[in-house]
Design a protein around this nucleic acid. Structure first.
Length: 575
RNA sequence: GGCGGCAUAGCGCAAUUGGUUAGCGCACCAGAAUUUGACUCUGGGGGUUUCAGGUUCGAGUCCUGAUGCCGCUUCCA
């Protein structure tokens, strides 16, 4: 079905609407370009994009942006997105990475259906394309070694010079290229190069290498091949083979676009995908460079690629992040060509916003201080209903028991409290969340002067937020856990991995900027009993503290994903 | 000294493609409400649209030049 120029609507009857502007949303510059292409009939089978990871590492938050863009735009235009592994360099790639990448993409909530492809599936096609170029006099086998190839290429300021092997005959090139494939030449002996222009202002056009000889075991093709195509020779052609209409990539490939197009123009009837570049997403207080991330792992600054402080998808997962929060960030940061640096707080806010709606509330005391309620008997306990989540509209509750001995947060008591300290102080009152107002009668210290216990009385007339006649309304509310019922736990308090917004900028190194307080392990936290039974991966809001996720044992362990906003901390900081 | 990009509140993005007083989110400040100092709600401050020329009745938008930043010198992707 070929649309006429005057009736460019490419949609088949019953197909999804081809115009994204139907949705009424503002289009970013990529979507505007795609819209134009559709109007010109350039995507007769719908918009097809691709996400093309090289399986040589784990996905990180930067990849999440690309995934959201590639899958999101395809969906917006009623098309689809292929998952294609760009596995053209076997020395660095492995099946393990393929598996982890697929797992992470699924976790993020995207589905490629049957559209899973590998550049290595096209090795035979690619070889044929290369032969075609040789036959057209557009490619040649070059015997220059790597070093000479580099020096012949010139620099950005000076032109390169032609390889002495540039003018070999078609027959000779054909024979040599076959020899390369047949394994008759040692690694590095020669390369196949495109014959373009050694004086081009664009270095990528100075007779780029198409194939190198490398005897490396490929995770999919095994030892079938000893020559492998370079990225530039594989990418556009793979796009074309798959019928990709829009190949969206990061800004650094802008200079490659002329080469991308050169191949498409010089290989017969292959198709014409369009490459459009956009800026990748950078976040403050973290890094996404694969080399530096690897360094952190290898030098033991983190526990692994899935350390909850790492910007990897696996790390974020363990940290307690939701796919929804990550997608929210990616969607809200816009799509432009401006090399932007986004505030990490946006990601944290996205998580708070998501979990505020979904996470059940629980009470947990991280740094416990014992409180004895002297007007409650040893065996007495008062059952109180606590709302699980005031935001989800369901209003389900659980029961917590107030007992004679409870734990409160050390931070929630001051002997001498500053102005505006709405918590418990010596001789003062505070309300226990879901409970009663208590009055601090006595502060008990050990021989070194450390506060070890508070003796308080509770006021039975203050249940359910009531303030009896004549009593001043108590403003402060603190969380607590019954000492009788408490579950002991380890809680890991995570913070930014780096203490500088732009780690390693200026003359500092990445390591100079590591945050020494990026993880604090609290060993004897006291949790309300329900938290002891939660499954691994379950997320909760610990009231007044933050959002936490149950981690793998042994024992009960929680990771802090993100703290709650804390305006008291801000007030204190100022004074 | 080359080539390719980019530049709009502190940060990130809009601005009906040349048309009123340049908007939005976050951040910030103030207040309201509240059994989480959370969430929510209301209001507020903050701009020489990098700079200099030009075209036009009219320029954030078009043209010229300058400045700053990013990328390009892997047989990596």
């Amino acid at each position: 079905m070929c649309p006429s120029p005057n009736a460019p609507s490419p949609a088949e009857p019953g197909a999804e609407p081809e115009s994204a502007s139907d949705a009424g949303a503002k289009l970013n510059f990529v979507e505007q370009e795609i819209e134009k292409d559709i109007a010109e009939g350039k995507a007769p089978k719908g918009v097809i994009t691709r996400f093309p990871p090289e399986p040589n590492g784990y996905l990180h938050i930067g990849h999440a942006k690309a995934i959201c863009v590639d899958f999101g735009i395809a969906e917006k235009f009623g098309g689809h997105c292929n998952l294609r592994f760009d596995d053209t360099n076997p020395a660095k790639e492995s099946q393990e990475y393929v598996d982890s990448i697929k797992d992470d993409i699924r976790w993020l909530g995207f589905d490629w259906g049957d559209n899973e492809f590998y550049a290595s599936d096209y090795f035979e096609d690619l070889f044929g394309f290369a032969v075609q170029l040789i036959n057209k006099g557009l490619a040649y086998v070059c015997d220059l070694n790597a070093e000479d190839t580099r020096s012949y290429r010139g620099t950005p300021h000076e032109p390169g010079k032609n390889s002495p092997y540039r003018d070999r005959s078609v027959e000779e090139n054909l024979a040599l290229f076959q020899k390369m494939r047949d394994g008759e030449l040692p690694d590095g002996a020669c390369t196949l190069r495109a014959k373009i222009d050694m004086a081009s202002a664009n270095l990528n056009m100075r007779d780029p290498v198409l194939y190198r000889i490398a005897r490396a075991h490929h995770h999919r093709t095994g030892d079938t091949w000893c020559i492998y195509p370079m990225y530039d020779f594989a990418h556009g052609q793979s796009d074309a083979i798959e019928g990709v209409t829009h190949s969206l990539c990061s800004l650094e490939f802008e200079n490659h676009r002329p080469l991308y197009n050169w191949f498409l123009e010089n290989i017969d009837g292959i198709g014409s995908p369009r490459q459009i570049e956009f800026a990748r997403m950078n976040l403050t207080y973290t890094i996404t460079s694969k080399r530096n991330l690897l360094g952190l792992v290898e030098e033991g600054h983190v526990s692994g690629w899935d350390d909850p402080r790492m910007p990897t998808i696996r790390g974020l997962r363990k940290r307690g992040y939701t796919p929804e929060a990550i997608r929210k960030l990616c969607d809200s940061t816009g799509l432009t060509k401006f090399n932007a640096l986004h505030d990490m707080h946006l990601l944290e806010n996205a998580l708070r916003e998501d979990l505020n709606k979904r996470a059940d509330r629980r009470m947990a005391v991280l740094k416990p201080l014992k409180v004895v309620i002297t007007n409650l008997g040893e065996d007495e306990s008062i059952a109180r209903e606590a709302v699980n989540n005031p935001e989800d509209g369901e209003g389900t509750t659980r029961t917590v028991h107030l007992t004679r001995e409870i734990w409160i947060e050390q931070d929630d008591f001051r002997e001498e409290a500053p102005r505006k300290f709405f918590r418990l102080k010596a001789g003062g009152d505070v309300r226990l969340r879901y409970g009663y107002v208590i009055h601090c009668d006595e502060v008990i210290k050990d021989s070194s002067g450390e506060i070890v216990e508070l003796r308080c009385t509770y006021n039975p007339d203050t249940a359910d937020g009531k303030t009896p006649e004549g009593m001043k309304k108590v403003k402060g509310i603190i969380h607590w856990v019954s000492a009788r019922d408490a579950v002991d736990a380890e809680v890991r308090l995570y913070d930014h991995l780096f203490r500088e917004p732009q780690p390693g900028s200026g003359d500092r190194s990445i390591l100079d900027d590591l945050n020494p307080k990026s993880m604090e392990v609290v060993l004897n936290a006291k949790l309300e009993p329900a938290l002891g039974e939660a499954p691994v991966g379950e997320r909760y809001q610990f009231e007044r503290l933050g959002y936490f996720v149950r981690a793998e044992g042994p024992g009960v362990i929680y990771n802090r994903a993100v703290s709650l906003r804390d305006s008291w901390a801000k007030i204190e900081k100022k004074s």
